[in-house]
Design a protein around this nucleic acid. Structure first.
Lengths: 234, 234
DNA sequence: ATTGATATTATGTATAGACATAATACGTCA
DNA sequence: TGACGTATTATGTCTATACATAATATCAAT
């Protein structure tokens, strides 16, 4: 057991990580308890606790009361995806941003939307379709449904100047979301909108957003597939 | 200021979150210091510290020594993506899994690969192409390059029985990764491999994996686009 | 006025001790 | 044997205190 000069939770965390990587502690194996580790590292249990807790948070170890702490069998291959606001994403790439509203209407929710938003029947929803340009080239097509029961004030917003994306982030921040990524082929309609050819590849992100148990909005974001890359690191 | 019965860091975290959501503290605004909050909540500074620290970790607030803690201007819209092992993903859906090796060769790295893996010139790499089936239907095509300088033992593995994906996870766990997601159109070659039609949509994940500063592997995973959805929640 | 030393302040980390809680092990009683 | 209550144990949390550190504010010296 190496003697660590500055017994900080960071150093302990790194040391435990190292022992796991090197298979000194194999996957599935129980590692010593906090008390034991504290003694070995010559620090208090709280310090070990924080080190191990953070390792548990990122999935390297699994903890259970009484049972102890064991090395995770297979660490989550999890990636953290940054989902930026389109405008900022485009501006960050040094391109000029433009936004165009295509449709803004109050409708009775169609069945598919009703299911996605978990709405009562006959609920009214706001249907917004719009387009985001980078340097005058269509970059993203946005097809959005907003739950008017939950966000009634959306009815009073024209969305001529601000995109529903940004308006909602401003209005209802800190919501939970579910994302689904897929690929599609452009049909005539979407090809015309995005200024590409029918049959080209599309990268599609479908997002549902809610707070507590209320679904706020469901949106389908469509990108010309060749040009778009969502990158996550870590 | 609400009086909280069980002054736990969770309750405090939730309360602060609530105050931020409700704009009691607006974005950009400085919230009271730990000492002050501890007094208000009737708990110790450590408890407040943990609550606020965790809020900082998930991007809700930003902290700076001496300056204080302020509400983040735009909360990260970050999503955590689970990237499962293909076999488990397929089995989890109740389908039968089969794996087929298409190619396994040692090559001098082509330029594109050399750049991706940050290799010295004339470095040898292992090139593996294989196919993953769900219920005998092609599910994922894997085209992988492995850095033999870093993982020499890969040369001695046939990859007839175990996929390079799983072999690497087993062999070199706890690596960092970068993922890029995009959409492509199937050309003749890939269409034949996946048993789809030329021109169909493909969902593409490109992943680079490394430890410390050494790149271990670069892989391109190709899915029939219509059938694949990567879902992330939270 | 610019520079540099010093004080102030809020967060960051560490500690020892305490009690809470979940899960298991064990022993007793039916 | 099985059911149930109790002891045990490792993690989970909270407290009070202390010192470290980064960033700013202040004030003095040049």
């Amino acid at each position: 057991m190496k003697n660590i000069k500055t017994s900080s939770f960071q150093a302990i965390k790194a040391d435990i990580m190292e022992k796991i990587k090197s298979r000194y502690w194999a996957p599935g194996e129980i590692i010593p308890g906090e008390e034991k580790l504290a003694e070995e590292y010559g620090c208090s249990r709280m310090t070990v606790n924080r080190a191990v807790r953070e390792l548990a948070e990122c999935g390297v170890v699994e903890r259970k009361r009484k049972s102890g702490t064991r090395v995770a069998h297979q660490p989550d291959r999890a990636a953290k995806l940054q989902i930026p606001i389109v405008r900022k994403e485009i501006v960050a790439r040094g391109s000029a941003y433009r936004y165009a509203l295509l449709e803004n209407s109050v409708e009775i929710a169609p069945d598919g939307v009703k299911a996605k938003l978990a709405l009562a029947s006959n609920s009214k929803v706001l249907h917004i379709r719009c387009l985001h340009f980078a340097d005058e080239t269509p970059y993203q097509y946005e097809d959005r449904w907003i739950n008017l029961d939950r966000v009634p004030s959306a009815k009073d917003e024209s969305f001529e100047e601000i995109s529903p994306n940004e308006w909602l982030v401003e209005k209802e921040p800190f919501s939970d979301a579910e994302h689904a990524f897929s690929a599609e082929i452009a049909d005539k309609e979407i090809a015309d909108i995005l200024g590409i050819r029918e049959g080209d590849a599309l990268f599609v992100v479908e997002r549902r957003t809610w707070q507590q148990n209320d679904t706020i909005t469901a949106v389908k974001l469509t990108f010309p597939g060749a040009s778009y890359k969502l990158i996550s690191r870590g």
